[in-house]
Each structure stands twice: as C-alpha cells, then as structure tokens.
C-alpha cells in the first residue's frame, strides 16, 4: 500500500531486532562474569568446540596452505622469486586464512548445533524447566558456550596456523622440489609476532560471534521443528556474515597505517 508505511515497518523491525540482540548480548556477558559458574558445562563445550573441531579445522587449513604454495608458485615463477612463497603462505595463513576459515568451519559445525540444541530445548519447554528448577538458563546454557567459544577459537586457530604452514611446506618441498632447510629458514624469517597475534585476536572475536549467534537464535526460536530449522539457518548465515564483516574491520584496525 503506502510505501512510507512499508519502510517504517522494516525500519522499526530492524531496530527491534538490534535492540533485542544488544540486550541479549549484555545479559549473556554479565552472566559470564558473575557466579555461579558451571565448570562441567564449560568443559563440555570446550571439548565440543575445541577438540572435536580439530579435524575439520586441520583439514581446511592444510589444504589452504597447500593450494597457496601452488598458486603463488605460478604467480612468482616468472620473476624467479620462489623464496617469496614461504612469505605468502605464512602471512596469508596467520593473518587471514587461519582465522577466517576456522571461523567459518566452526560456524557450520558448532553455531548450527548450538542453535539447534537450544532451539529444541526452547520449543520442548526444557528452557522453562530450567527456570522452574531455580537455574538461570543464561548461566547454564548461554554463558558456558560463550566462554568456551572465546577460549577455544584462538587455540584452534593457533593449531590451524601450524598445520596450514605445514601444508605449504609439503607442497613446496615434495611438489616444487625446494630445499627443505631453505624453505624453513625463509618461513621463519617471514613470521611476524604481530601477524600471528592479530589472527588470534580475530579468532577470539569470531569465537564470541559464533557462540553468540548460535545461542541468540536458538534461545529465541519458536514454533516447533520449523522454528528450530530457521534458527539454525539464521545462526549460520548471520555468524558467517558477521565474521567476514569483523574480519575486515579488525584488519583495518591492525594494519592500516
């Protein structure tokens, strides 16, 4: 009908969603820092997010490292600058590909399952049951996931960095026939603490985003199986977009001179 009415409706809806999300985030964070804590729940989430995601993150980063070495060889060989490959691999992996790939893979693995689990608990009244058993759902369900996400993602990315660089090494040495000790030497020289650290800071932020989106969408889901399905999709889509968005923002903050 009225076009202004439509615009107004969506603007209002947008601000309502943002408001709800901000409120959810503040409540969740405040529960992360106030007792009681649930160490068993936190440990369980740390295992789930950290340990069980290792294979996925390891596989993604090793292939990323391998393909980086191959591609940059094609690009650099004309200038006979093969030594630069170690440089490209290590900078790309630690600064960008490690955190972003791990973040996206963990979103698919963990963000989705958090949304599905909390969503199911919501629609089957398990969240209400927690409240009646004098347990705050934010403390018992949301806080452990946020804490585990923030702690485990940097660790995952750190391991992912090592595996990714190893992938580059394997291709450089066995496929491109580089001298192993030369390659390790130039990798070592190319490595900057700042690159690794910035990647780990990104990972911490991504871990927060993944858990937050999984919990928010799961916690606010309604309307049975369909609602849970929608919550799962929403959590993956929103977390992925936010990760890419914050990756850009953090890169600007870290490396813009």
């Amino acid at each position: 009908m009225n076009i202004l009415q439509h615009i107004g409706h969506y603007v209002l809806k947008f601000f309502r969603t943002v408001g709800r999300l901000v409120l959810f985030t503040l409540t969740a964070v405040s529960h992360c820092v106030r007792p009681p804590f649930y160490p068993r729940a936190i440990l369980r989430q740390m295992l789930e997010i950290g340990y069980f995601s290792l294979p996925v993150v390891g596989l993604t980063t090793i292939f990323a490292g391998m393909v980086l070495a191959l591609q940059s060889y094609t690009g650099f060989s004309r200038f006979s600058a093969e030594g630069a490959i170690a440089n490209v691999v290590i900078i790309s992996i630690t600064r960008e590909l490690g955190p972003v790939l791990a973040g996206l893979m963990v979103t698919g693995r963990i963000g989705a399952s958090m949304a599905a689990e909390l969503g199911t608990m919501r629609v089957t009244e398990q969240v209400d049951a927690l409240t009646t058993l004098s347990t705050n759902p934010f403390k018992y369900l949301v806080a452990p996931r946020l804490i585990a996400g923030v702690l485990m993602l940097p660790l995952l990315v750190f391991i992912g960095d090592i595996i990714g660089v190893l992938g580059g090494y394997l291709v450089a040495v066995y496929q491109l026939n580089f001298n192993p000790s030369n390659y390790i030497q130039s990798s070592w020289e190319a490595m900057e603490t700042m690159d690794v650290l910035s990647g780990l800071v990104k990972a911490t932020v991504f871990g927060f985003i993944i858990s937050l989106m999984g919990c928010y969408h799961g916690y606010s889901s309604k309307g049975g199986a369909q609602g849970v399905g929608k919550a799962t999709t929403d959590s993956v889509v929103s977390a992925s977009i936010l990760i890419l968005c914050f990756n850009f923002i953090l890169t600007v903050l870290f490396f813009e001179k």
């Binding site: 089957t124 009244e125 398990q126 927690l130 009646t132 058993l133």
Partner: peptide, 26 residues
C-alpha cells in the same frame, strides 16, 4: 520459584543428561 515445581506437558526432560541427573537437577 523454590516453592514451585512443574511437571511439563512434554515432560521437558533434559535430553543431554541421564535420568538421575534430571531427577536430582534441582
């Protein structure tokens, strides 16, 4: 809410916990 307890329509048991942890949860 310490005064209350509730038997939910769908039972609403926590499916990640064994039966005894459900019962003794409160």
């Amino acid at each position: 809410n310490h005064k209350f307890s509730m038997l939910f329509q769908s039972a609403a048991l926590f499916d990640s916990l064994p039966v005894w942890e459900n019962v003794a949860f409160g």
